[in-house]
Simulated scan of single mutants.
Amino acid sequence: MGKKKKRDVELVILSDIHLGTYGCHAQELLRYLKTIRPKRLILNGDIIDMWQFSKRYWPKSHMQVIKHIMGLLAKNTKVIYLTGNHDEMLRKFAGLRLGSFHIGNKVVLKLAGKRAWVFHGDVFDVTMQHSKWLAKLGAIGYDTLILINTFVNWCLNRVGREKISLSKRVKDSVKSAVKFINKFEETAAEIAIDNGYDYVVCGHIHQPEIRKIQTEKGEVIYLNSGDWIENLSCLEYDPRTGWRIYRYAEDKVAQSVKLPKRFRGDRLDNDEIFRDLVNEFLTVKK
């Protein structure tokens, strides 16, 4: 990135990165992270995809995302890792605090006199509650669809056509999927209103959104950070301007960031992964 100044951001909320899967856009996320200096970073679930994690697939760029976040801790950024369904095994560590790093299942933030309730959102997913095997099968199907979509978009790019999102077309065409998303948002909003929160912030459904939801009991601002599989989006908060949805596709500065060639598609073997982790923990940065 050279001498370009990084943006100061009060709060960044990232979710559904799915490191360790073919659909993850780790390089694009790295470029974005290199353009900002966040005071607080919330990783709102499904950061590492432990459902589909494979020793055979772990590119260097995926490892670099983790290392970059660890580096933010050394620069006084507070990092909160909220667990999701794809990284649910970390829920046994909820409550763990190591300096500026915290693992939890939910968090309530005070922002300019208002309260924001932040959690991943899979608790509202009926499939997760009663048919986890079906949810995992769906995750595999989704990852496969993303792979097919990547090839389709490559072909479209070669002939000068615009990219398409197959999963979005599937969701838009299936009434039950649209109904689930609407119900998800309404349920989150209703519980937030009952508990007196001003904002409710989720991930899980991969649909970036900021909108006011009103019920008979009151109103709340519902927010969703989207994902880094298709939308390449997150949430940013500034005390002066409020919330906004960040979209990588609209960020020319991040797109211009040059990454080292060693991050472009190279894969780490198991020995390299272990060496990198050891070096990261043993190296003291001043």
Rank of each mutant, 00 (worst) to 15 (best):
M1Q: 07
K5P: 04
K6R: 15
L14R: 01
L14M: 09
D16S: 10
H18R: 06
L19C: 08
G20V: 02
G20A: 05
T21H: 08
Y22Q: 09
Q27D: 14
Q27I: 00
L29E: 04
L29N: 01
L29G: 01
L33T: 04
K34W: 03
I36G: 05
K39D: 14
N44D: 14
D49R: 04
W51C: 07
K55N: 13
R56K: 15
K60E: 13
H62K: 05
V65P: 11
V65D: 07
I66W: 04
K67P: 01
G71K: 10
K75N: 13
N76E: 15
K78V: 13
V79K: 04
V79P: 11
N85T: 10
M89F: 09
K92I: 15
F93K: 06
F93V: 00
A94K: 06
G95H: 08
L96Y: 11
L96A: 12
L98M: 10
F101I: 05
I103H: 01
L109A: 00
L109Q: 00
A112L: 05
K114A: 01
V123K: 00
V126P: 15
Q129P: 03
H130G: 00
S131M: 10
S131T: 10
L134Q: 09
D143L: 03
T144I: 15
T144C: 07
L147H: 02
N149V: 03
N149S: 05
T150K: 10
N153F: 10
C155L: 15
L156Q: 07
E162R: 05
K163M: 12
K163A: 15
K168Q: 12
R169H: 08
V170Q: 04
K171I: 14
K171G: 05
K175W: 13
S176N: 06
K179D: 14
E185A: 12
I193G: 06
Y197T: 07
D198L: 11
D198S: 14
Y199D: 02
H206S: 11
I210L: 13
I210R: 03
E216G: 04
E216S: 11
E219A: 15
I221Q: 04
N224W: 01
D227I: 06
E230A: 06
N231G: 06
C234A: 13
L235V: 05
L235Q: 04
E236A: 03
Y237G: 04
Y237Q: 03
W243F: 11
Y246I: 05
Y246L: 07
V253K: 02
S256C: 08
V257E: 03
R262A: 09
R267H: 13
D269R: 04
N270S: 14
E272I: 11
E272H: 08
R275P: 02
D276E: 15
E280P: 02
T283W: 10
